[in-house]
Structure formats: structure tokens, C-alpha cells
Amino acid sequence: MEFYDEKIKALAIEIYELDAEVYKKLGSSLGRVFGGEKDICIRNIMEDLHSRQNSSRIRSELALISNMARTIPDHDTRHDIMVRYNNIVEEIAELPTGFADGDILDPKIADLNTVNLKDRFKTGDHLIICIGRSCGCGGNEIGFALADKLRMNFYDVSVMNEVFRQKDGEEAAQATATFQKKERMGIKKRIKAFKKYHGLSSEDVLFFDTSKFLVEKAKQEDFIVMGRFADAILTNNHIPHISIFITAPEKRRIQRFLEINKNVTPNQAKKWIESEDKRHLKTYKFYTGRKWSKASNYDICINSASYGIKGSIELIIRMLQLDDRVKQLIE
């Protein structure tokens, strides 16, 4: 147990120092995930590493660090940092609490395998993979690991919310600097800035911010995005992408939910999964006009119980390599 605790502490320090190194190399506040007091940050990281239930938070924090690290201009520096990052991810994955790594595989139905992908990317287009998933199917773990495998940036709701928070902070700082310099702003621009998203709910604001974010990113980089109506947003903006939906039988999803959340009863797990499915159905329909999880809305639907987490990743990669243009993008 003592050895395990020491390993957790060493990993927490490595994660904190890697974040600090990325920040140092970029010289931007957007490169800093752990901006608080060092000892407190390390303690918080250790607590998350100790808890399988909190593995999603560590995953999102590491995704933020790696996303920023990939923007470091110097190739050698970027390579060295990404090697350190990959080593950290591998070490965490070996922990009993690492990345909720209990699998979703059901051997009884693991022989299903059929994929198809049409050529849709033109020269200059970025590879964008949109992944929708049902609660408890291992979708987030699949998306995160796939992003690392393809060396692409990863965005889930936690990562995007942090990007928005940091961006709002920078915009506020810029506004303050503008005021201090007494630069003049026209009355129309003042009114527009004041009324931004006026009267909309926080969910609506998040949807519009997400739409703007995804359209901008699609012009700049390859990436994987989890949920957030990304497939519909990109379709409406005529942006090429690949849409994937991942799910598993409810019984297996409940089992996995219980494996990760030790203090939850089977009945509570069932109610939680059912309520999450209903929430996704409702919000997806409201913002997109589509039916969430309907097979015809996606390029491929994966039953993760058929393939498991690693097998699902391999399946997606094989699907991508069927298309010559996509193959060039990921090689």
C-alpha cells in the first residue's frame, strides 16, 4: 500500500510539473491547467488518482495539457513533452483506479464486425471525429484513447468548459486593458457586447459557444469531440466529419457503472443510466431536431460490449484506414 501511495504521489507531481512545463514553453495562461498552490494541486491530483470514480476528471485535465502541448512550435521540445505525457498516461492506465479501465466486452456477442466509410474529405480538410455515446458504455475512454493513438486533440464537455472559462478570463483582461488605454468603442459595438446572448438560458449559451468553438477548430486542426451535438453542428455548417455512436446493452452498462461507482446500488445505477438516456434524447432532439442514438444519423454504431474498449479503438482505426484520404491524414 505504501508503494502504491508513493507511486500515486510521484505521478501527481509528474502531472503538475508537466503542466507547468507546457505553460512555460507556451507563455500562455491557456497552457496552465493547475494554477493553484503547488501542494494543494498535487494533493487534489492524488485524490483523483486514488478514485476510479474521478478518473474522468484526470482524463480531461490530461487532455487539456496534451491539447496545449501539441501547439508548442519547437518540434524537439514538443516531442519530449509528448513522450513524458504518453508515459504518464501509460502509468495511470496501469493503476487499479486508472481511467476506469474495467472493460465493457461481452464475449457472447463479440463476433459482430461490419463497417463502411465513404470518401468525403478534400485536400485541406481536417479529420474530425464526433463520438456520441450512452452512459456506462466506455465511450469516453474509447474517445480519449483514440485521440492519443491518432495524436489528435480531444474535447469533451469538461475540456471545452475549461477552454471557455479561460477564454472568458482572457477576454475580460483584454477588455480591462482596452478601457485602461481609453481606446474608443463605437456605441453599436458596446451594445452588441453588452447584449451578447441576452435572455438565453445557460444551456443555450453553451450550445452557441460550442458551435462557434467547433467551427473555428475545424479550420485549424484534427480533433475528436465527445457529444455536444457536434455531428449536427458540423453538418449544418457543411464541415466534413465522421460520426460515431457507441453504446452497449443496458445490463452491461449497469454492471460497468457499478464497477466504477462502488457506493451505488444496482437500482440507483439503473435509474441513473435511464435518466441520462432520457436527458440525451430530449436535449439532442431540442437542439438538433434529430433522434439521439438513431443508427441512420451516424456513419457507424458500435456495440462496445462486442469489441471492448481496445477492440473498439482498433475497429475505428480500421474503418478510417479504409478511406485513402483519411489514411493520409492519420499516417
Rank of each mutant, 00 (worst) to 15 (best):
N153W: 12
G227S: 10
I187V: 11
V157L: 12
S158C: 06
C135L: 09
L117Q: 10
F179S: 09
G124K: 09
H126G: 09
A177Q: 07
A218M: 04
L146F: 05
D168F: 13
L117H: 11
L117R: 13
A230H: 10
R190F: 03
I233P: 04
R190W: 04
K181H: 07
I131D: 11
D204P: 09
K189L: 00
G98V: 11
L150H: 05
C137Y: 09
V159D: 07
S211Q: 03
K192C: 07
K181S: 12
N113Q: 09
G143Q: 06
N140H: 12
F208D: 08
D103N: 10
K217A: 06
M160C: 15
H198C: 06
A175W: 15
G186T: 03
M226A: 05
K149M: 11
I224Q: 00
V157G: 14
G132W: 12
A173V: 08
K188R: 02
D111V: 09
T178Y: 07
E203N: 10
A147D: 00
K182T: 12
D156P: 11
E221C: 10
H126Y: 05
D209K: 14
L200N: 02
Y155L: 04
F154A: 12
E162N: 08
K188V: 04
E170F: 12
P107K: 00
G102L: 00
M160P: 02
L206R: 14
N113V: 07
K181W: 06
T176Q: 03
E216S: 14
F99D: 00
A218Y: 01
D125N: 15
K149Q: 07
G98Q: 02
T210M: 02
D204L: 12
I233D: 04
L117P: 15
T114Y: 09
C130A: 06
D222W: 01
G199I: 07
K212L: 06
A172I: 15
K167V: 15
N113F: 07
G136T: 05
F207S: 00
D231R: 04
I109V: 15
V163C: 04
A175E: 12
T176H: 00
A145M: 13
I128G: 00
K195W: 08
G227D: 10
L146K: 02
F223V: 05
K182D: 15
L112I: 01
H198T: 04
G139M: 14
R151N: 13
V225P: 04
M185A: 05
M160G: 10
F207Q: 01
L105S: 14
A172G: 14
F207R: 02
S202E: 04
F208K: 08
E171Y: 15
